[in-house]
């Protein structure tokens, strides 16, 4: 998997060999504001899955520092109790800026975990970057984690994140204001067009206290209900198609970013830049020429 992160060519052959074995895992995305309790919820969810004899892999995404490119990947702090359980595999990944890091390695990691035969693959991200939203779109069921006390933030929460939610988990419900958040989400949902469509999935809204393993059974049931709904309304092939479409897009954009990354700083790059600076070339002409360069 390390090769995948680094985009090494060896990885490609391995991936191609693995691919026929994918398509069996159930993917669940967990997205929400920093500190909303995603990792704690993932930890509690893994525990519940293990009680039900389901194996779980988790990809925990954290942002890379835009300055150094480094990252502190601390999600495991909340998941340590599973460290010695063979039925649990946790992998921390950094976004690595936008030059192909996340978009290149994560779809690959996801495939590896799928091929390894895990029943469930969880993907934790804060969901602020476009990359991350793209990643979460790989999931069959998306859980968006909200917390009380964000005030008017429900409206402010990135539209993209709200749209992907199949389930809202109002975590930290031990704190004041959880019911209000639940009401606000429900009000918001009732304004969606799909609210009037009998066949549409109406996102469930439930309260959890991840630190005390509370609300996890209902969360699990909500995931099952969403899965059942998917099965009733879309064929397996359609669901797979949606993920594959996203996967192929991610692989293309990852490759594209990687190629741009390799182009940056080369002589060709610099000479076009200089030409644009000298006003002998327009930015569009330079881009056209450089575009040809990477393909």
């Amino acid at each position: 998997m390390r090769w995948l992160d680094d985009g090494r060519p060896e990885a490609r052959a391995e991936l191609d060999a693995l691919y026929p074995h994918t398509g069996n895992a159930y993917f669940i995305g967990i997205t929400g504001h920093p500190g909303s309790g995603k990792s704690t919820l993932v930890d509690a969810f893994i525990r519940l899955c293990r009680e039900r004899d389901l194996t779980v892999a988790c990809i925990a995404v954290d942002p890379s520092s835009p300055f150094s490119g480094g990252a502190i990947l601390g999600d495991r702090v909340r998941m340590n109790r599973h460290a010695l359980d063979d039925g649990v595999f946790i992998r921390s990944v950094a976004t690595r800026g936008n030059l192909g890091g996340l978009s290149r390695s994560t779809p690959a990691s996801v495939q590896v975990m799928d091929a390894m035969g895990f029943d469930i693959v969880l993907i934790e991200t804060v969901g602020v970057g476009q990359d991350e939203i793209d990643i979460v779109r790989l999931a069959d069921t998306n859980v968006v984690v909200m917390v009380p006390g964000l005030g008017d933030d429900i409206q402010a929460t990135k539209a993209g994140v709200m749209e992907i939610a199949d389930i809202f988990a109002v975590n930290k419900s031990d704190l004041d204001g959880a019911d209000r958040v639940v009401r606000e989400i429900k009000t918001m949902l009732s304004m969606n067009e799909s609210a009037d469509d009998e066949d549409a999935w109406i996102p469930s809204v439930l309260k959890t206290v991840a630190t005390h393993q509370e609300g996890l059974e209902p969360l699990f049931e909500a995931v099952e209900a969403h899965r059942d709904w998917l099965q009733a309304h879309r064929s397996d092939r359609d669901r797979d198609r949606q993920r594959i479409e996203q996967l192929v897009r991610l692989v293309i954009s990852g490759e594209f970013d990687a190629r741009i990354g390799r182009l940056l700083g080369t002589d060709t790059w610099k000479s076009h830049l200089e030409a644009v600076l000298d006003r002998t070339e327009t930015p569009y002409e330079a881009a056209d020429a450089l575009f040809d360069e990477i393909f």
Binding site: S64, S68, I72, R76, S92
Partner: peptide, 15 residues
């Protein structure tokens, strides 16, 4: 951990 991050490393912190 922070010093390593600032030097460009990915640090898995386990607590």
């Amino acid at each position: 951990a922070r010093a390593l991050r600032d030097a460009g490393f990915e640090v898995i912190y386990t607590g």
